[in-house]
Amino acid sequence: MFTDFDLFNFFRSWLGWVVAIYCSIVTARWLWDLLGYVRSTDRTIAMVRRYVAVQLLRIRWRGFWYDLLICVLLTVAFFLLWHAQNVMDEIEAALRHVASVHASAAGARQ
């Protein structure tokens, strides 16, 4: 069992889980605070809300549509590679399983 243990994989998955949970909590709290602030009926906050909405609508997308497209393509490529990695892991596990079956069969013959 311990022969299958990979320290690098363990570290990677552990780091992934910790970072994902931390980022989710921080982002959710930030969003919640922001929503509470923006939903206020105060006149000045309403003005800020309108101002932010106007600023968002006035973003000039023509300046960075290329970067945005690259980001989308890279995200797609990343998920494809992830899927390929999973397939490769399954093949490796299957090969290892076949090798162990062959080894046990050879031991039984001897």
Binding site: I59, F64, D67, I70, L74
Partner: peptide, 17 residues
Amino acid sequence: RDKEVSNRLKILKITLW
């Protein structure tokens, strides 16, 4: 604002690369 959005997108692009 435009510069900030552009910089954030560049950072995201580098991370994705």
